[in-house]
Design a protein around this nucleic acid. Structure first.
Lengths: 157, 157
DNA sequence: CGGCGACGTGAAAACCATGTTCATTTAATA
DNA sequence: TATTAAATGAACATGGTTTTCACGTCGCCG
């Protein structure tokens, strides 16, 4: 468990990044987290686990992974950026639970098609889109109350 | 030109807000701005015009207008919030030019329908979505270069 | 294999949008 | 007009993110 593996390292290398202890640690921690996670939280987890990685480095690494297209990024309500290792190469959208943070990829083909058609309808070029979807997942729903969330954030240590 | 008008005042009043000189000024400036604008920029414009409105008040007013549903809000790449007086009552999406900032409402009915269907497909409840669309508008496109934008931001003073 | 140069690191500080405090002012109502 | 709750704004607080810069180290090349 916890194999960094040649693939991860390879991807990072391909992106023009040197393989360092810190970047391997970030990549590893990110790889074992199934849900979106913030830079701060990721850093906390790394240091709690005894590692020594600077917060600056975590930010920088995540930014570079984003540039390299190796992670998906969303913004939560406060504008904070959340990262998730991207499992595939394709453009994805996620539905995220407002209570527990659990994320679920959704089939947004209809949106992609619609967005593609926008170019000619509007005269705009180089269209880009981001879609933030939130809701309350089945496991968090029972009570029905708004604020109190019955479940803890996923991706527990 | 520049009429605050009974309607604007009325809408604000209906939202449970007192009519103050500052709020009228914010509403007026917002009303004469055809594109999305940040709180900071709006404040700069108000003070440059000789008015005295605190930045705090601009933020508070915009937040309340948002709560009251009188403005549409988007986030730019840096996460900064941008505001636009909402012309109608319905939920809208905008396509915004990355060069000049010009915004254009788009018919996103297809997305609305798709999003509505997500609930049963995923088991999530209380779905909410935000969609940020950007591109390069026809007027900004001639050169084709990426960085240098031929046009100045719209909504000039 | 050893040295060198570019890239990477991280503590501290800067940044910047936004929120909070609280004493003072003001709009709406009686 | 008197009263009062709401609104204002300067200063300060907050928190995520970036920059700075002195130091470390990765990886290549001889």
């Amino acid at each position: 468990m916890g194999t960094v593996g040649a693939m991860e390292d390879g991807h990072a290398r391909a992106a023009g990044l040197r393989s360092t202890r810190q970047r391997r640690a970030v990549l590893d921690a990110l790889g074992r987290c199934p849900e979106f996670i913030s830079a701060q939280e990721l850093h906390a987890r790394l240091t709690d686990a005894g590692g020594t990685v600077g917060l600056t480095t975590v930010y920088r690494t995540l930014r570079e992974l984003d540039r390299a297209g190796l992670v998906d990024v969303v913004r939560d309500d406060s504008g904070e950026r959340l990262y998730l290792r991207r499992p595939t190469d394709e453009h994805r959208h996620y539905l995220i639970c407002r209570c527990c943070g659990r994320s679920q990829p959704v089939d947004a083909e209809a949106v992609e098609v619609w967005a593609a058609g926008l170019a000619e309808a509007t005269g705009f070029a180089e269209l880009e889109h981001t879609l933030e979807l939130t809701g309350v997942c089945a496991d968090c729903r029972p009570g029905g109350a708004e604020e109190p969330c019955p479940r803890q954030p996923a991706c527990a240590r």
